[in-house]
Each structure stands twice: as C-alpha cells, then as structure tokens.
Simulated assay, not measured.
Amino acid sequence: MNHFPSPAAFEAALAALPPASTAARAAAEARQSRLTKPAGSLGRLEDIAIFLAGWQQRERPKIERARAIVFAGNHGVVARGVSAFPPGVTAQMVANFEAGGAAINALCLAAGIDLKVVAIDLDRPTADFAEAPAMSEAECLAALNAGAAAVEADLDLLILGEMGIGNSTAAAALCARSLGGDGALWVGPGTGVDAEGIARKREAVDRALDLHRGAPATPFDTLRRVGGREIAAIAGAVLRARQAAIPVVLDGFICCSAVAPLHAAQPGIVAHCLAGHCSAEPGHARLLEQLGLDPLLALDMRLGEASGAAVAAMVIRAAVAAHDRMATFDEASVSAGL
C-alpha cells in the first residue's frame, strides 16, 4: 500500500498531524498524583508514562508490542571518500542483523523488542548528491512508502534506526539544508574518518548546498535531494506512526536527521517522539536542541542501528511498570501526606 502516493499527499499528511489524547494524559497525571510516592519523585519516568498515555490513548499505557525497525540503504556520495568503510559493508551488516549477530540484536533481546530489518535497493546506491539529486521523485516516494508500510498499526512502541555507509554525510546535509549552517557546523567523524575525511565530508555537504540552493525547500524535496533511501524511509515511518498514534523512539544523529526537513515545515512532527539518547556525533546535540527533544540517555554511543534507542526502551519499560504496578495511597492504606 502506498500511504503517500505523491509528494502532495506526503506534504498534506504532514500538515494534518493528529494530536495526543488530552483526556488520557489528564487521567495518567491524576493516577501519578495518587501513587505511593512523593509527587514528582520519579522524575522523567513520570513524564514518560504520561507521554505514552496520551499517544496510546489510555490512562495506563502498556508495551506488549514493541518493535525496532532498522532501515538500510547505500549512498553515492561514498565515492568522495567520506567514509572509513566501503559501501559493501552495508549489505554485510544487514546479513549480520538477520543472523542475529549485531549489537541491535542483543539489545532488542534484552529490552524485549522485536527487530525488523528493511533493506532498500542496496545494489542501487543513491546518486552523489553533490552532483545531482540523490533520488528521483519516484525513488524518494518509494522509500517513504517502504518506511510507512513497515509500521504496523497495533504497535505500542516503535524504535527506529538505520544502517548505511556514508549516511552521516547525508544527515549533515539534511540538517544544514533544513535548519541552516554549513558542512563545518554539522559534519562529524561518523564511523571514524580522520581529519582529511572530515574535510571531504564538509566539502561534499557545501557543494550539495550550493548545487541545490535554488530548489524548493519542501520536506519532500530536501529528502530526495540530499537524503538517502533509508533516511527517507525513517521519515515515512515517523509520519505513519503519527497517523496511527504510535509513540516513537528515535536513535542517533542520522535517524534524527530524517525528521529535520519535516520539523522545518511542521515543528509538531516530533510531539509523538522521544529522543532515545544523545550520541557522541557532534551534530546530534545541536540537532536535538533544534528539534526540542531532551534525550533520555547520554552514553557516548555512536553505533547507529537503533542501538541507543533500544537501550532507552528499557528505561521506558521501567516508566510504564512504575506507573501501572505501583499501588495508590488508597489501595495501600498509606497517608497521602508524603
């Protein structure tokens, strides 16, 4: 099913974002006030539970069906020497995910999360976006719809991540075109390139910004010009999750960059999103600040593949457990004067 049959349909969906349930939030807040603890004593765990209640539209949220989706794609800009690894590593890592041998497999197991891997045309890298648009209109729509189609409407929590050699360069270009700045502001070491590699990444981003400067700055056009298939898929998944009222946990810099073009046009797009962590990639903290997202964790992770978001899901489970399983003052016959 094509949830977004045209760029106009994608933009229309972005302009018509459904809100959270204020009634469910209010009921969850009221429950928090009756639990056997001093008010506010569980800090952000209380906020997380109330956030989930609003989007799941129930006083006591649950996480029975949680899924991590890792989207994978390849990038033509890799030919400019912007990565420490060759593009063939993308397919090799996808095989590792499918065999159960990657960090995300271990972390999903620990967090009680199902894992789904969606590889998109790995044998057809995007065009070098410093020379031409990364994708045609049809290719970008296909990637957006691949992301939307991967989201099942009955999920309680969606964790998003990516795999794609060279995609930190695309992420920097997306942030610069959407939020302002240049390559120097947004480029970091990614998988570990040296100073010369960082210089090549900055040059690629700046060339792309110059090349596409006169093009429309719509979310769709920015994604197709300087993004990648796996990044566009994340954007499609985020928007589809919003339509289905599914709360989303975003991973690192690259994952969050998929939201930057959408946020530039419609800041409310992140209302159903949690930032799982702040990664070690320098641009991530700046991006989260621009998006207005306060990360749950800061563990100096920089792996991608939804790993930081999967760790954060364990904290989210703790928030749900406390909210649901604690007794109220009345149930425990405890004075409410704590």
Score class of each variant (00 low, 15 high):
249 V>T: 15
115 L>E: 09
298 A>V: 09
122 L>M: 08
312 A>S: 04
218 T>N: 06
230 E>V: 07
245 A>C: 15
11 E>V: 13
158 L>D: 04
310 A>S: 14
112 G>M: 02
263 H>D: 09
216 P>A: 07
300 D>Q: 12
210 D>E: 15
145 N>I: 12
291 L>W: 01
195 A>T: 14
172 A>C: 01
153 A>N: 10
1 M>Y: 11
188 G>H: 04
204 A>T: 11
272 H>L: 03
118 V>S: 04
38 P>W: 02
187 V>K: 12
196 E>V: 13
17 L>C: 15
127 A>D: 12
292 G>W: 07
18 P>R: 00
176 A>C: 04
83 S>M: 06
268 G>N: 05
32 Q>F: 12
173 A>K: 02
265 A>I: 14
119 A>Y: 05
211 L>A: 07
239 L>P: 15
219 P>R: 07
93 M>Y: 06
319 A>C: 10
286 R>Y: 04
302 R>V: 14
73 G>I: 08
19 P>H: 12
51 F>H: 14
110 A>S: 15
328 T>V: 10
313 A>C: 03
176 A>F: 08
27 A>W: 05
116 K>Y: 02
48 I>R: 00
47 D>N: 11
243 Q>M: 00
25 R>V: 06
218 T>Q: 11
107 L>E: 09
41 S>R: 00
67 R>L: 09
104 I>E: 13
90 T>G: 02
140 C>W: 12
282 P>N: 08
62 K>R: 15
61 P>L: 08
43 G>D: 10
132 A>I: 10
330 D>C: 01
150 A>S: 03
195 A>D: 14
335 S>Y: 06
164 G>W: 10
141 L>S: 08
46 E>K: 02
114 D>A: 15
45 L>F: 05
243 Q>E: 02
238 V>G: 09
110 A>P: 05
142 A>L: 08
192 G>Y: 03
92 Q>K: 13
7 P>H: 10
155 L>W: 09
97 F>K: 01
173 A>F: 03
298 A>T: 14
192 G>M: 13
200 R>Y: 12
5 P>H: 02
29 E>P: 09
25 R>Y: 03
3 H>W: 13
185 L>E: 12
322 A>E: 10
154 D>L: 09
228 G>Q: 06
283 G>D: 07
210 D>R: 15
114 D>R: 07
142 A>F: 01
47 D>K: 13
72 A>V: 01
279 S>Q: 11
250 L>A: 13
126 T>E: 12
129 F>P: 13
206 D>L: 09
50 I>A: 04
328 T>N: 10
34 R>L: 11
16 A>P: 11
235 A>F: 04
287 L>S: 14
164 G>E: 12
272 H>T: 00
188 G>E: 08
46 E>Y: 08
6 S>K: 07
238 V>Q: 12
179 L>A: 13
329 F>L: 01
214 G>T: 08
32 Q>G: 15
215 A>C: 15
314 M>K: 02
147 G>S: 14
172 A>M: 07
251 D>R: 04
81 G>N: 06
67 R>A: 01
